[in-house]
Simulated assay, not measured.
Amino acid sequence: MKAEWNGTVIARSDDTVVVEGNHYFPPGSLVTEHLAPSSATSVCPWKGTASYYDVVVDGEVNAGAAWYYPQPSEAAAQIADHVAFWKGVTVSA
């Protein structure tokens, strides 16, 4: 699987974890130069508190387009520190 935004691959892995239809990419599969920490958070009733990254490509910023669970609930332990994407980021095989 790969995640792309504005024609640039920001993650690639053969070992994503799919939860609720979203592919969560392992930390080692991320192109970290395209991810900038965000102060945004949200809470999922069963996964826990999510943190966000802004996706940055060629100076363009897609705010909050990536999220992860640094300390997920026990039920979602398999996605700890894995990153998922939305807001126009294309995830495909």
Rank of each mutant, 00 (worst) to 15 (best):
A80L: 05
V55N: 04
Y52H: 04
N22S: 14
L35G: 11
Q78P: 09
A84I: 13
P70R: 00
P72R: 00
P72F: 01
Y69L: 03
N6I: 00
S38V: 07
S51I: 08
V18Q: 15
H23G: 14
W5A: 08
G59L: 06
V9P: 03
V19M: 15
W46N: 12
T41Y: 07
A93W: 00
V89G: 04
V91S: 06
V55S: 02
A80Y: 00
M1S: 13
K2V: 05
V18T: 15
V89S: 06
L35T: 10
P27N: 11
W67F: 01
H23K: 15
V89E: 05
V31T: 13
W67P: 01
C44H: 07
Y53F: 12
A80S: 06
S42K: 03
A36M: 08
S92F: 10
H23Q: 15
H82R: 06
V43L: 06
E33H: 08
D14K: 02
S51L: 08
I10Y: 09
G48S: 04
G64C: 02
V19L: 15
Y53Q: 04
P45S: 10
V31W: 12
G28P: 09
G7C: 11
T32M: 14
R12T: 11
D58S: 12
V61T: 02
H34W: 13
T8W: 06
Y68H: 02
H23M: 15
D81K: 03
S92Q: 10
V19E: 15
A36G: 07
V56D: 02
A93P: 10
G28M: 13
E74S: 09
F25G: 03
M1T: 12
P37T: 13
A84K: 14
H34M: 14
H23I: 13
A63Q: 02
N62G: 01
E33D: 13
V57Y: 03
L35V: 12
W5H: 10
K87R: 05
N6E: 06
P37R: 14
T8C: 07
A40I: 06
S42P: 01
T41C: 05
F25D: 04
P72V: 01
A77H: 11
A50Y: 06
F85L: 07
T16K: 05
A75H: 08
M1K: 09
V83L: 10
V91Q: 06
G48N: 05
N6L: 09
D81E: 05
A80Q: 08
H23V: 13
D58F: 08
A3C: 09
L35D: 10
D81V: 00
W86T: 05
W5E: 07
P45T: 09
Y69G: 00
E33A: 14
K2F: 03
A11G: 11
V55D: 04
P72A: 01
L30C: 11
N22Q: 14
K47S: 15
N22F: 13
M1G: 12
A40D: 07
T32D: 12
L35A: 10
A77V: 11
G88Y: 03
A50I: 07
V19I: 15
A66D: 01
G7K: 09
P27Y: 11
V91A: 08
Q71T: 01
H82M: 03
H34E: 14
Y68S: 01
I79H: 04
T90R: 11
M1I: 09
G21S: 15
S39C: 06
P27G: 12
